[in-house]
Amino acid sequence: MPPLFDVPCNVKKIPPAKAGTQIAADLQLLQKRVIEYGAAAASVIASSQVIFSHDVRARAAADVSYPSFNWPLALPRDNMRDAIGAYQHGIFFSIMFSKPLPACGGGPIPDEEHRRLYERLYALVTDIESSSFYMGYQLALGLAAGNCRAVFCHSEDRCWAMVKGRGCIHPYKGRPSMETVGIDTRVMARSLSMTGESDNRLLAGLVMIV
């Protein structure tokens, strides 16, 4: 998939303050592009519409059978909820699969077709995040679904970012998932009327922009 924006032509200088009208126009443009690039639905949301759930976070934290840096995400010196609350707006979007998706949690994704769907989700998240960055939103932050190790490093015997002195081998692709930071994706999708007939065919991504 080509990037949403041609970076060499579109890098914007960071302004001292961003006008509300410019932010609204940029968010609409990004939302439109996400749909054009294959999302089933996309909404511009306020950070107050991000739904956190202690249970979702606790489930992810307890799921340690296939650990990676991003699953379960443990940042003792940083508070993800506070950080997400510091944004004003983001884009929440979904992609749909033709049949129900098994609940893999943070574990491996055995089915290659399913894995490709996750790859598509991560590509959209990273692309929107990167495009937002070059549009002058330097704090844009993307969250995907599942465990990035299951998507990009399933053939590796470990997550290399967790090995002292080594580093992530897919830093530009891997992102934490919404569930590992405690966001209830399903409830959010329902609240935004994105689920349609069934919510077990849906994968969702979130990019907080500004």
């Binding site: 840096f69 991003n70 940042l75 003792p76 010196r77 940083d78 508070n79 993800m80 506070d82 950080a83 510091a86 944004y87 990273t126 995040e129 330097q138 704090l139 932050l141 993307g142 969250l143 970012a161 002292k164 002195g165 580093g167 992530c168 830093p171 530009y172 891997g174 992102r175 934490p176 907080m208």
Partner: peptide
């Protein structure tokens, strides 16, 4: 701003976890 430190971690900077001053270590 709490978002800034997260940009060292999402996406994961090549130096995160490798330098004592860098997130997830360093000052909160």
């Amino acid at each position: 701003d709490p978002r800034v430190r997260l940009k060292c971690l999402i996406p994961l900077c090549y130096m995160a976890l490798r330098c004592d001053h860098c997130p997830p270590d360093g000052y909160s």
